[in-house]
């Protein structure tokens, strides 16, 4: 870890100004991912601007029925929030599926969204990695691929995004509120993350110096019937092999509307729009759910060593939709 300056931000604008004006500066939330990377030599900021105590620590109702989540709200507090638990349970469950309780007590909403891939080659500076060191090559593509992408990858990068929270928020049409030197902008989460393409070193569309200050969840009544299911190699405290966030609106034996996203399968949380299209209007049945899953996964291109993720994602989605449909029926 290289020496760095530490600055505790007084307010958001000065924090943004401090980071934006210096290419080697970075925001510090709880640091549960950034400090990890600094120890490994993956990240080497020269200035850390601590934004964890800025007054973005509330969950508030939005006019129009949505909810605004402050970027500094701790993962555990957000998961336990009564509004989230009742109206957006997929978000609570996704948070509770991530990391461990003692990390969730520290980790912030904004930091969670900005955590970087767990690709083992990304994390080991002695191996080539295009995401860490553009142009050095991808070690994963012909290497250890168990946790790697089956959708939307490129020949430059096959990494996956590790956040659980982001998957649930993506499914439920959340928007990220960002403050930059030129003011605020709102970015739908679906557009916030990038696919790797030729420049996998960029995870998101954020410009340097832009700070996440909040996440907005829109009013979505049927999100009260939503859930998050994470399939992993340990029963707890492990990153996803495959995860599914879904919400289902059911009436008269058929699907009125649906929201679906996959985690663990792509460089970003994978909003399953094709699956949603198939589901809308379809009768509630395993066949419908299977068709939806297969429509989405038709484009899957697994790597040698992670072929299992295709049936795993398919079956998990079917199981989640079945569960939500049964829940609705009760």
């Amino acid at each position: 870890m290289i020496p760095f300056e530490y600055l505790r931000a007084e307010d958001a604008a000065s924090a943004v100004a401090a980071v934006a004006s210096r290419p080697t500066a970075a925001f510090l939330g709880a640091g549960t991912n950034l400090v990890d990377h600094m120890k490994l030599g993956v990240a080497s900021p020269e200035l850390l601007v601590d934004v964890s105590r800025l007054p973005f620590d509330e969950v508030e109702p939005l006019p129009g029925g949505g909810v605004r989540i402050g970027a500094a709200v701790r993962n555990s507090d957000l998961a336990a929030d009564p509004i989230l638990r009742s109206r957006y349970p997929a978000v609570s469950r996704a948070l509770l599926a991530g990391a461990s309780a003692q990390l969730r007590n520290l980790a912030t909403t904004g930091g969670n969204l900005l955590q970087r891939t767990r690709c083992v080659y990304f994390q080991d500076v002695t191996t080539p990695c295009n995401k860490r060191e553009p142009g050095s090559g991808c070690s994963a593509i012909d290497g250890y691929t168990r946790y790697h992408a089956i959708l939307g990858a490129s020949s430059a990068c096959v990494a996956t995004h590790p956040s659980d929270l982001a998957v649930a928020l993506t499914a439920l049409d959340a928007t990220v509120v960002v403050l930059g030197v030129h003011g605020e902008r709102q970015i739908p989460l679906a557009d916030f993350y990038r696919l790797p393409g030729d420049d996998p070193h960029r995870d998101t569309v954020l410009e340097h110096g832009e700070l996440i200050i909040a996440v907005d969840l829109p009013d979505l009544p049927f999100a009260a019937r939503s859930t998050y299911r994470k399939v992993r190699d340990r029963a707890s405290y492990a990153f996803a092999l495959v995860s599914v966030a879904a919400a289902l609106d059911v009436a008269d034996g058929s699907v009125r509307d649906a929201r679906v996203a996959f985690g663990g399968v792509a460089h970003k949380p994978w909003r399953a729009t094709r699956a949603e299209e198939v589901l809308r209007g379809a009768p509630i049945s395993d066949e419908s759910f299977l068709q939806a899953a297969e429509a989405e996964l038709a484009g899957a291109r697994p790597l040698a060593g992670n072929e299992f993720k295709v049936p795993m994602a398919r079956n998990t989605l079917v199981a989640v939709l079945r569960e939500l449909a049964q829940e609705e029926a009760r």
Binding site: Q123, G143, Y144, R234, A235, S236, Y237, A238
Partner: peptide, 14 residues
């Protein structure tokens, strides 16, 4: 390559 306790899994309590 999985040289840490996040990637080399030992059984957790659950």
């Amino acid at each position: 390559v999985n040289h840490d306790l996040a990637e080399y899994h030992i059984a957790a309590n659950a």
